[in-house]
Amino acid sequence: METFSGLPAGAALDVATGEGRHALWFASRGWTVTAVDFSAEAIRKARALQEAHAPETADRIEWVRADVVSEPPRRGVYDAVAVAYLQLPAVQRRRALRGAAEALAPGGTLLVVGHDSVNLTEGVGGPQDPAVLFTAADVVQDLAGSGVSILRAERVARPVGEGGATALDAVVVARGA
């Protein structure tokens, strides 16, 4: 989340929030957050995590159960959009990422991070289905024509657990027009 650490608090969208850790990170720093996941169980766990560890953020997070592929977020309203480990087949991923880009307010920042395609053979962990893995170049292509400027697109090694194991992630940072 270092991508957002230097930005002034505003409106944030956490796409595929899962258990809500990124939403809680934003909210604990003063952001107003819309946290979206298709799973009712994920939203339940996120609310429980919030209640147990960050109850002071209750008025800053809206937990939304929705499918970001078929229900795109509001357009042009978020200063920060995080899409972390949303591992979908290419057509669905492209639709979700374009929705995330369109949700950016002018000058807003989009972060996309997920398990890189080479993680299957060169890294550890993550999905074992190559159809849901992607590269930074894939994300750049997904976002082409969406009006964002690419600031960063690369493969990044991420330490996992103990013993020096490494996962490989695709990371893209973009700015809204």
Rank of each mutant, 00 (worst) to 15 (best):
A136Y: 05
R152I: 14
P127T: 07
L88E: 12
L120D: 11
A174F: 07
R98C: 12
G114F: 04
A165E: 11
T17H: 06
R94N: 02
L111P: 12
P89N: 14
Y78H: 03
T32S: 12
T17Y: 07
G20C: 01
P8R: 13
R152N: 12
G108Q: 14
R95N: 07
V148R: 12
P73D: 14
E71R: 10
V132N: 08
L13M: 10
T17I: 05
R94F: 05
G99R: 01
L7R: 08
A105V: 10
I43T: 13
P8C: 05
A40N: 11
G108F: 13
A100R: 00
A165P: 06
V36S: 07
V64N: 02
V36E: 04
A16P: 03
W25C: 07
V139T: 06
R47H: 04
L88A: 10
Q50N: 02
A35V: 02
V172P: 07
Q87M: 14
D37T: 13
E41A: 14
L120R: 11
L104A: 13
R158S: 09
A144P: 05
H53G: 12
V83G: 11
A174Q: 12
A101N: 01
A144T: 09
G126K: 00
L133I: 04
P127Y: 01
E162R: 02
A100S: 03
P159W: 00
A23V: 06
T135P: 10
P73V: 02
G107S: 03
G99S: 09
E62P: 10
P130E: 13
S149I: 15
A90L: 14
V139S: 01
A54N: 12
T32D: 11
E56C: 06
V140N: 05
A100Q: 12
A9T: 12
T17S: 03
E51H: 07
S149H: 14
V77I: 11
L49Q: 09
L7W: 08
S5R: 03
T166W: 04
A167T: 09
T17L: 05
E162P: 09
P127D: 04
N119Q: 04
M1V: 09
L151A: 02
G6R: 01
A82E: 10
T109L: 14
V33S: 01
P73A: 11
V171W: 02
F26M: 04
R152T: 13
Q128R: 14
D67S: 04
A105R: 07
A137E: 15
Q50M: 10
T135H: 07
G123S: 06
G145H: 11
E56D: 15
T135K: 03
A90K: 15
G99D: 15
I61Q: 10
A131R: 15
W25N: 00
S117T: 15
Q87W: 06
E162H: 05
T121E: 08
A96M: 01
A101K: 00
P159F: 00
A170C: 06
D169A: 00
G125S: 05
D59R: 15
A100Y: 05
P73G: 03
P106I: 03
Q141D: 15
G163I: 05
L97Q: 14
I61T: 11
A105H: 01
L168M: 05
G18M: 00
L168E: 06
L49P: 01
A84N: 15
A9L: 12
A52L: 11
W25D: 00
A46N: 10
T3Y: 08
H115L: 01
R93P: 09
V160I: 05
R155I: 06
L7E: 08
V171L: 15
A101M: 04
P89M: 15
E2G: 13
I43W: 00
